[in-house]
């Protein structure tokens, strides 16, 4: 059983060590105690180790691709997609959407909802697969556009929270990515083709936006293919 130390700085070091994996926490605090490190020195060593661990993670390409190539740009696009879905849904319920007839309105809503959910799901799954240890950074990079848009979204007919609709499938995608990785390559390729077709049919978007939205779906398909071949 670990010895209880009354030095407040040591307590702070022990609290900071909670940021480390359990086995490493044990070894590091034990080493510091064995060398009679002061509380302040122990706290500094633990924080420095945590910082170095984080820096080590960012020496790979994956966190950069996921953070700057997926979480940040996709969030902006998906915020807009969420509003489109909410708007289409409102059109189905109350009329006044893009289509005057009910069937057209429902179809538009379904297409937009499927595209938004599919892209968000694949994005979340890719984030979890590529860089699970920097999830918090990706979450932060996703949160920045969300807060920015929430603070500026002003309309009487829609709640500002409709902006965040995409977060539900995105979080489901993250959960699946963390637990199972990706599905079979046929399923993943099918999803990628379906989403590409939906995107091309639905939105008048630039090639860059298309790439930002769809690269996770195609990455998952390619990655699943590689895994199947192995």
């Amino acid at each position: 059983m670990a010895t209880v130390i009354v030095d407040p700085m040591w307590s702070a070091a022990e609290a900071a060590a909670l940021l480390l994996p359990a086995s490493e926490r044990e070894a590091v605090l034990g080493d510091l105690m064995e060398t009679d490190a002061s509380g302040w020195k122990a706290l500094r060593a633990v924080i420095w180790l945590r910082v170095r661990r984080e820096v080590e993670l960012w020496r790979r390409w994956q966190p950069w691709a996921v953070g700057l190539g997926l979480a940040l740009p996709s969030s902006f696009v998906l915020l807009g997609a969420s509003v489109s879905v909410a708007w289409a849904f409102r059109g189905v319920l109350h009329g006044g959407g893009l289509h005057p007839d009910l069937v057209g309105g429902v179809l538009t809503f379904l297409e937009q909802a499927l595209l938004m959910a599919g892209v968000a799901w694949c994005g979340g799954q890719t984030v979890a697969l590529l860089s699970r240890r920097t999830l918090w950074t990706s979450a932060l990079l996703c949160l920045i556009p969300c807060c920015f848009c929430l603070s500026r979204f002003r309309t009487e007919v829609l709640s500002p929270w409709c902006l965040l609709l995409f977060l539900v499938p995105a979080m489901c995608g993250i959960a699946v990515g963390l637990r199972r990785g990706h599905g079979g390559w046929k399923v993943q390729t099918g999803i990628a083709v379906f989403l590409t077709a939906l995107a091309l049919a639905q939105w008048r978007i630039t090639l860059l936006t298309l790439c930002v939205l769809l690269w996770p779906a195609w990455y998952l398909a390619t990655s699943a293919r590689k895994t199947d071949l192995q």
Partner: peptide, 29 residues
């Protein structure tokens, strides 16, 4: 510790949790 992890990742060392001693406050090596 970051270098030990890197070396382990390269397959140059192996590491495991050893015994706990009193001078380490009952923590494992």
């Amino acid at each position: 510790y970051t270098t030990i992890d890197r070396l382990e990742g390269k397959g140059l060392i192996t590491s495991w949790m050893g015994e706990a001693t009193a001078e380490r406050g009952g923590r494992a090596k």
